[in-house]
Amino acid sequence: MLTDILNVLSPTNLSFLLSGLGLTLYMSAIIIVLSTILGTILAVMRNGKNLLFRWISSIYIEFVRNVPNLLWIFTIFLVFQLKSTQAGLTAFTVFTSAALAEIIRGGLNSIDTGQTEAGLSQGFNHFQILIYIILPQAIRKMLPSIISQFVTVIKDTSLLYSVIALQELFGASQILMGRNFETTAVFTLYVVIALIYFVINFAISQFSRYLSKKWEKAMS
């Protein structure tokens, strides 16, 4: 039993897992940045006065959110014939941006309309009011939900191995499991992978709580 555990935790295997972790974090970072930008644009479009933009954003958000992410990964990979990494980034950005758009829209709607009126009275245009007045306040309110979505992205990248054979963290562990059939070795790998996901996501959640408390003190 101890031999199996030591074999699984050998430097070579750990290095292989870390390479998978690096790909997971790299992809998650890109997905989060792109999805936040696109999600913000969609939220502003859906809240805007332009009827065409509102319809486009509404259809996009509702359709994408109600189709499983797994199906988006599979469809984009096959239809557009992209490489695995590109397909994964595209599918996750499409799906996550729709989820973030609703979170951001809720945050924007939570800000009193008097803020906009006050900004207009001071000579700001609508874009300046959005950037300098509305968004900074909205971010404080929607931060926990946004961080929760970011954590979901990191966890759900594990779907990429089963659909498009991308060797991210979970995919790397599956490859190692194929080389180690002993029950103890497989169990050890599962524990190691679970701990890695937990540490990363718990750290992100704790940082979110820290920021929320810091902002609450600053506003009090």
Rank of each mutant, 00 (worst) to 15 (best):
Y197H: 11
F80D: 03
I193D: 07
I204K: 09
S173E: 05
Q86E: 08
A118D: 12
I164S: 02
A101F: 01
I154H: 03
I154W: 00
Q81E: 06
K155H: 10
V151F: 01
L160P: 08
I129T: 07
I139W: 00
R65C: 03
I146F: 14
T183L: 10
A101H: 08
N109S: 11
I147V: 15
Y190P: 07
T75D: 07
Y197S: 09
Q137N: 14
V67D: 05
Y190D: 11
D156P: 09
V192H: 04
T75E: 00
V191G: 12
I139E: 05
A99E: 06
I196T: 13
G114A: 11
A138I: 10
I104N: 02
A87R: 03
Q128D: 04
I103T: 13
A118Y: 04
A101L: 01
L100T: 03
L82D: 02
G119I: 01
P68N: 10
I134T: 12
D112A: 12
L159Q: 02
N125P: 02
A203I: 15
L176Q: 03
L78V: 12
A98M: 04
F127W: 12
A99N: 07
Q149K: 06
E168R: 05
I103N: 09
K141W: 00
I76V: 15
I103R: 13
A138W: 04
I147P: 05
F95N: 14
V151Y: 02
V79F: 08
N69C: 11
F170T: 15
L143F: 06
V199K: 11
I103A: 04
I103Y: 08
N66K: 09
G119P: 07
F150R: 07
V153W: 00
F170A: 14
P144W: 01
V199R: 11
G171D: 08
I193R: 04
A118S: 13
I104Y: 09
H126M: 12
N180E: 08
D112T: 11
Y161H: 09
V79L: 07
N201P: 03
T93M: 04
I200H: 09
F95T: 12
Q174L: 06
N180F: 06
L159E: 01
G171L: 06
S145K: 14
F92P: 00
L189G: 14
L169N: 08
W72S: 09
Y161L: 06
L176P: 03
V67S: 07
I133V: 15
L70W: 05
A185S: 15
F187C: 04
L176S: 03
R105N: 03
Q137E: 06
S162I: 13
I111Y: 00
I103K: 13
I147C: 11
L195I: 15
T93F: 03
I104R: 09
D112F: 03
T157Q: 05
A194L: 13
V192E: 02
L159F: 10
T90I: 05
G171W: 04
N201I: 12
F127Q: 12
G171N: 08
T96G: 00
M177Y: 12
L176I: 15
Q122W: 00
V94S: 05
P136A: 10
R65G: 03
G107M: 09
I147H: 02
T188W: 04
I134V: 13
